[in-house]
């Protein structure tokens, strides 16, 4: 007990607290700045910094961006794509992972090796040829462009396979005796068991799709098909001098995912752990 008390009061511990919370301020001030600026009357200048964080606040910037750009449409696009991509890619990935983990077939090792090397492929370096392939398939400037290429990522397959490997083969045999085919076994046993992994991968894929910039920026021309991230620069060029409107669009695109993050942090942390260490 005395050990504990002295630890609380000691100078190094106090310093550690000061450092820890100062760093927290550095991390969060740009985000807070974005949010408070979005709540300031249009055309506000900086003046005294402290004043920015005090009232008067107004929502008229939000009203303005809704009136001047199809931002509702962009939000729906972002939401739609960010839901569809994780759902489809998790179904596909878990099916493939099941085959790789529990079904015997020829050249299994090679097939897995190909997927694993897929993780090394630097997508950014082949983005021009991806554009040309998408052009050849005639899917540019459509929802297909936003969704289909995103289903090619191998990370999900590798992680889910690892998880399935941990499920005993006896479970498959037992299900077989009970008359379950392979597909039913996957659906009734493996999918429910892998919920934690799937949840982590889902959130991860959702955030990644919501935030993606380079590919939507290249592949989408029609304004109605914009996702929020590529809508932001569009806004910037039109209102260059004023800080409040661009910050409003930024805040609008970020607040939903900040909320998702705060509620589902646990899964995001797990997702990172999978990619880095357990992957």
């Amino acid at each position: 007990m005395p050990e504990h008390a002295s630890r609380k009061l000691s100078l190094p511990v106090l310093l550690l607290y000061i450092v820890a919370f100062s760093l927290a301020i550095i991390c969060i001030v740009p985000i807070l700045w974005m949010v408070v600026t979005s709540l300031k009357p249009e055309g506000s200048v900086i003046g005294e910094i402290g004043r920015r964080f005090l009232p008067p606040f107004t929502f008229e910037n939000y009203q303005y961006i809704f009136e001047s750009a199809p931002i509702v449409r962009w939000t729906m696009n972002s939401l739609f794509v960010s839901m569809v991509v994780p759902i489809l890619s998790l179904i596909n990935a878990s099916l493939a992972a099941y085959a790789l983990s529990k079904i015997n077939f020829s050249y299994k090792k090679i097939v897995f090796w190909v997927i694993l090397s897929g993780m090394m492929l630097p997508g950014e370096a082949t983005i021009v040829s991806l554009y040309m392939v998408a052009n050849g398939l005639d899917i540019l400037d459509s929802y297909y462009a936003l969704i289909l290429p995103a289903l090619a990522g191998p990370l999900g397959v590798v992680i889910i396979r690892q998880f399935y490997d941990g499920i005993p083969n006896e479970l498959v045999d037992a299900a077989k005796i009970d008359g379950c085919g392979l597909f039913k076994t996957w659906w009734n046993i493996f999918l429910p068991l892998s919920k934690p992994v799937m949840a982590a991968l889902f959130i991860f894929s959702f955030l990644g799709t919501w935030n993606d910039f380079l590919w939507p920026f290249l592949s989408i021309q029609t304004e109605e098909l914009y996702t929020l991230p590529i809508g932001i620069p569009f806004f910037m060029s039109s209102y260059n001098q004023d800080e409040t409107l661009p910050m409003t669009v930024n805040a609008y695109a970020s607040v939903p995912i900040i909320i998702v993050f705060i509620f589902f942090q646990k899964y995001i942390v797990k997702g990172i752990t999978f990619t880095g260490i357990k992957g």
């Binding site: 991390c27 955030l207 929020l228 620069p233 995912i257 995001i268």
Partner: peptide, 19 residues
């Protein structure tokens, strides 16, 4: 602290750039 340290990471590149 963990929440705050990690938070910038979840923002889009478009958002952080313009901020």
């Amino acid at each position: 602290l963990r929440t705050v340290y990690f938070m910038p990471n979840i923002l889009s590149v478009a958002v952080i750039s313009f901020v």
